[in-house]
C-alpha cells in the first residue's frame, strides 16, 4: 500500500495524502488505472526478464538433458547422461585423484582450481580493502590521491589486466626483472604450479579497490557518537574496531563477502585472457571449462549441465550465508 508506506514523510505531507486521496477519488483515478499504469511501466523489464533471463534459465535446464548439436541448432534427449559424465567418477571413488590430476575428471579439477582461487583471493581482497579503508578513513594527507590510486585497477576490463599481468609474469617479464637479482626469477605464468597464483595475484590487485570503496562508504555511516563513547570508556584502537567499527559494518561486510565469493566462483574472463586455462589445465576454472565445452567445442548440453551444477553450488552457498547471517542477527 503505497500510502501506508509513505507515512515516513513529514506531517505536512501526510496531510496532503488525505487531500490527495480524496482528489484521486474525485478524478476517478482508481485501482484499475493504477494496475494498468503500473504494469505498463514495468512491462519493458518484464519482457526483457522473461526473454533474456527466466526463459533462458528454463531453457538451459531443458538443454542440460540434451545432446545439443550446434550445427543443426537442435538437440536429442539424453536424460541424465550429461550430468553423469560430468560428475563421474566421483572424487571419493578414487581417493580424490581428480583433485591432483586433471585427466581423471576435469570438472572436479576445475572446481578445485575455482575453490583455490576463491580461498586465495576473497579474504585478501576483503581484508586488504578493509585495511586500506580503515587507514584512509583517518586523517591522511593526500587521501584523495591514495583513494584514486587504489581504485584505478577497478576501472580496468578483466581482459586488459590479464594481458598486462601476463607480460609482467612472463619468463622475460618485468617481475622477473625485479626478482632476478635475488635469484627468484621463475617462469610464473608458464609453470602449472604457479600460473593460477598469477591469476590470483592479478585478481587481488584488481579487487582491493572496490572493497575499499564499499568499506569507506560503510564507515561513513557509523555515527561519530559511538566512537566518542568508546573513547570515554578508554577503549584501545583495537577495541574500538572490534566493538564499534566491525559490528556496524555488518551489512557492508556481509554484502562484500557474498559478492566476492559469488563472483570468484564465476571467474573466467581473466583466466581465459591470462593463459587460456593452461598450462596443463592449471588455470581452468569451472566457468572457463563451461565456456570451452559450450563455445569452443559446441557441446551446449554439457555446458548447460555444468552451469546448473555450479548454479546449485552458488545458490546453496548464498542460502547458507543468508541463514547464517539471520541467526547471527538474533544475537544482537
Amino acid at each position: 500500500m503505497s500510502f501506508e508506506e509513505s507515512r515516513t514523510d513529514t506531517d505536512a505531507e501526510s496531510a496532503l495524502f488525505e487531500v490527495a486521496t480524496s482528489v484521486k477519488q474525485q478524478l476517478g483515478i482508481n485501482r484499475d488505472q493504477d494496475n494498468l499504469m503500473g504494469w505498463m511501466f514495468v512491462l519493458p523489464n518484464v519482457v526483457m526478464f522473461l526473454v533474456f533471463l527466466l526463459g533462458p534459465v528454463l531453457f538451459a535446464f531443458f538443454i542440460s538433458f540434451q545432446d545439443w548439436n550446434i550445427l543443426k541448432n537442435e538437440g536429442t534427449w539424453v536424460g541424465l547422461t550429461n550430468y553423469i559424465e560430468i560428475l563421474q567418477p566421483w572424487p571419493w571413488e578414487n581417493n580424490f585423484a581428480a583433485l591432483k590430476d586433471p585427466t581423471v575428471n576435469l570438472w572436479w579439477y576445475s572446481l578445485k582450481n575455482t575453490a583455490v582461487y576463491a580461498i586465495g583471493t576473497v579474504p585478501l581482497q576483503i581484508f586488504g580493502g578493509l585495511a586500506i579503508a580503515l587507514l584512509l578513513d583517518k586523517r591522511v594527507r593526500g587521501k584523495k590521491i591514495y583513494r584514486a590510486a587504489y581504485f584505478m585497477p577497478v576501472m580496468l576490463s578483466g581482459a586488459a589486466s590479464a594481458v598486462m599481468w601476463r607480460w609482467f609474469l612472463a619468463a622475460d617479464g618485468v617481475i622477473n626483472g625485479l626478482l632476478e637479482p635475488i635469484g627468484l626469477a621463475h617462469n610464473w605464468a608458464g609453470d602449472p604450479a604457479t600460473a593460477l597464483g598469477g591469476v590470483m595475484l592479478m585478481a587481488i590487485w584488481g579487487g582491493i579497490g572496490s572493497n575499499m570503496i564499499f568499506f569507506l562508504a560503510g564507515l561513513q555511516n557509523i555515527p561519530e557518537e559511538l566512537y566518542e563513547a568508546a573513547r570515554i570508556d578508554g577503549a584501545s584502537d583495537w577495541e574500538k574496531f572490534r566493538h564499534v567499527t566491525w559490528p556496524n559494518l555488518g551489512n557492508t561486510s556481509f554484502f562484500v563477502i557474498v559478492m566476492a565469493i559469488i563472483s570468484s566462483f564465476q571467474v573466467f574472463g581473466i583466466a581465459l585472457a591470462f593463459s587460456a586455462g593452461g598450462p596443463y589445465y592449471s588455470t581452468t576454472t569451472s566457468v572457463l571449462l563451461i565456456y570451452q565445452r559450450a563455445f569452443e567445442e559446441g557441446q551446449m548440453g554439457v555446458g548447460a549441465a555444468m552451469a546448473f551444477l555450479l548454479f546449485i553450488l552458488i545458490f546453496a552457498f548464498s542460502y547458507y550465508q543468508y541463514r547464517y547471517r539471520q541467526s547471527e542477527e538474533v544475537d544482537y
Binding site: F52, G55, V57, A294, A304, F308, L310
Partner: peptide, 22 residues
C-alpha cells in the same frame, strides 16, 4: 521476483541466450 533474479549467475543464461540469438 526482480530482486531474486540477481541471484542467477550470468553463466547459466549465457548458453541459452546465445542459442536464442542464433
Amino acid at each position: 521476483g526482480f530482486i531474486s533474479t540477481m541471484m542467477i549467475p550470468g553463466m547459466v543464461t549465457l548458453i541459452p541466450v546465445y542459442l536464442l540469438l542464433v
